[in-house]
Each structure stands twice: as structure tokens, then as C-alpha cells.
Simulated assay, not measured.
Amino acid sequence: MFYLMILAVAASRFLPHPPNVACVAALGLFAGSYMSGRRAYLVPIGVMALSDIMGQMLGIPGLGFYNLAAMAMVYLGMAASVPIGRMLRNAGGTSRLWKVPAASVAASTVFFVVSNFGTILAGWYPMSVAGFTACYINAIPFYGFTVAGDLCFSAVIFSAYALSQSRFRLPVLAKA
């Protein structure tokens, strides 16, 4: 199931969309919640790598490898959604009504902080208080897109899985 989701989400990065609206972090949250072991980290990293390799080969703007420091931080920011998904899985109680959106906003925020630090490391802003301030202020509109996309895609992925479990009696994914 996760392999199909990786392919679908990787393909979705090629569709027209607003900047920073992607379902990679939502899939990372889902993988963290439902996959066991370290292989959950391969889900968001696999999506990013697959789509970036194809984007690089096809010369698609916005996809591909543009700066090692920036890309490393983008990948790290996406992978950070997995431990947030693990916290979501381990949270007590039965209702996920507010927990999934909260985890989604947390993943968006971590990605915002980490990926923008990557732009500073890449040399696009000076390593100074003024540079940090300018970087994070300029990125605020992108943060809004990230939050909106992550909230929507998290709702779709988690709801679709819950519905498919109850409707079609699919086996529960590993939670160990």
C-alpha cells in the first residue's frame, strides 16, 4: 500500500499546484503513524528523491537538485514529519479529530523552520540576525501554503484510510 502511495504522491508533485502545497509531509505523518521501524522515513524521502530525480532528468523547474545544503534541509524537514506521526500514533485517547490537524500544523512548522535554515546555509541570505530575519519573514507566505496543503492532504489520507478500514474491512497497518 505504501509503495502505491509513494508513487501517487511523487506523481502529484508534477501536477500544477501553488508553491509549497504538497502531500509529502502528510504522507510522512501517515507513515509515522502506521509503519513500524526506520522504513517509515523512506516514505517521504522516497517521494522526494523519486520526484526530484525525475524532475532533474526532465528539466522541470522547481523539481530536481539545486543546492546541496538547501536540499538536505528540505529532505530533513520532510523526514521530520515521521516522528511527529509517531507522536500522533502514541497519543492517548481515541479521537483523532483534533490530533491529526495539530500534528499537521506541527509538521508544517518544523518544515518551515528547517527548510528556511537551509536557504541560509545555501548562502541565499547572510548569516546574520538581519539575514535570518529577512529569510523567515520572506517565507511567511509559503508557510501559509504549506499549512493549508498539509492540513488538506492529512485530512484526505487519514480519512481515506479510516473509511477504507471500516468500509472494506482492510487489515490494520503495522503500528509497532
Rank of each mutant, 00 (worst) to 15 (best):
A162R: 15
A11Q: 12
P126L: 14
L15H: 05
S51N: 08
D150R: 02
A79N: 07
S95I: 01
I84N: 03
I120W: 08
A31F: 00
M127T: 02
F2E: 01
G131K: 09
V114C: 09
W98D: 00
A72Q: 02
I60C: 11
P126H: 13
F158M: 09
F132R: 04
P18K: 03
L163N: 04
M73H: 09
N90I: 04
A103N: 01
G118Y: 04
G32A: 10
D150K: 04
A26D: 06
C135R: 13
G32S: 05
F30S: 01
M1E: 03
L170K: 00
A162D: 15
R13Q: 08
F112C: 13
L97V: 06
F65E: 09
N20S: 13
S108H: 09
I140Q: 12
M1N: 02
P18I: 04
A10H: 10
A122T: 08
R169P: 00
H17D: 00
C135F: 00
G64M: 01
K99Y: 03
R13F: 05
P19D: 11
V105N: 10
V47A: 14
P83S: 11
A102W: 08
N138F: 09
S95P: 04
M71T: 15
F14S: 10
F153D: 05
Y41L: 12
